[in-house]
Amino acid sequence: MTDRALAVVRAGALTTVQDLGRPGHAHLGVPRSGALDRPAADLVNRLTGNPHGAAVLETTLSGCAVRPRSTVTVAVAGAPCRVTVDGRPVAWGAPVRVPAGALLDVGPAVSGVRAYVGISGGIAVEPVLGSRSTDLLSGLGPAPLADGTVLPLGRPTGAPARVDAAPQPAPPAELVLRVTLGPRDDWFTREALRAFVSRSYRVSPASNRIGLRTDGPALERARPGELPSEGVVLGAVQVPPDGRPVVFLADHPTTGGYPVIAVVHTADLAAAAQAVPGTPVRFVAVRRR
């Protein structure tokens, strides 16, 4: 067996393999998937000398621990956390050399939700429709990590970045999401539209890779009935019958029948990926360019 591999010692609450996802297949019912905090995933690839879009690990709240079988360069970014190699603290947000057989421990998130672990060579599981991402809605891609899972690594192609630390945004204390209204804002009452862009919501603990769920004022519809299923984009704010907005994240269904009141700017979705349950959320309407 090749020594370009990584053994999972502690999988954590939910750790998945993620890359840029598999856009272009929505018409077949295949979600886009991919890293939720894209800038953080891009950063760990740059830091480790990987090409853009190499597959990384995405942890959820509790981190993970892995043991590479050969010496690798790793970088951890996204949610701030304590990182150790064989128990010794090492830098977060910078390239770190991990000797063959050493234990890399990515601790629980100090703030934020998702840490990204880039490894030189990238995670080299077999791609599905051009992507190695785990899609939790459809089940495509590798299963979430389990203790004992062994993941193949690719060959490093570039040198690690020569930086001490890379600037990263802090996880949001308040999540401000810029939205453009529509396409189905006409399904809501005037009061609901006003409440949507002026009242405060909170991130619900029921949030996941499929959607950021919110608790807050229920949005009342102006019309009864159902909307025939229609295509839905990343960042769509769908309002199910309970009236609480759901922001669609990477593993969102490709079609849906609940009205989409607005769409969140793509640039704001990385912050949404790092907002812990309970974080206040404000939707700010901006005009289309």
């Binding site: 856009p23 272009g24 929505a26 018409h27 025939p228 299923s229 229609e230 295509g231 839905v232 984009v233 490709t254 079609t255 289309r288």
Partner: peptide, 20 residues
């Protein structure tokens, strides 16, 4: 367009260069 997604009464076009 990156995605062309037909549905019951609609077609969604996503990833457009100049949507307007």
């Amino acid at each position: 367009a990156r995605e062309i997604v037909p549905a019951a009464r609609t077609v969604l076009l996503d990833g457009l260069d100049s949507p307007a």
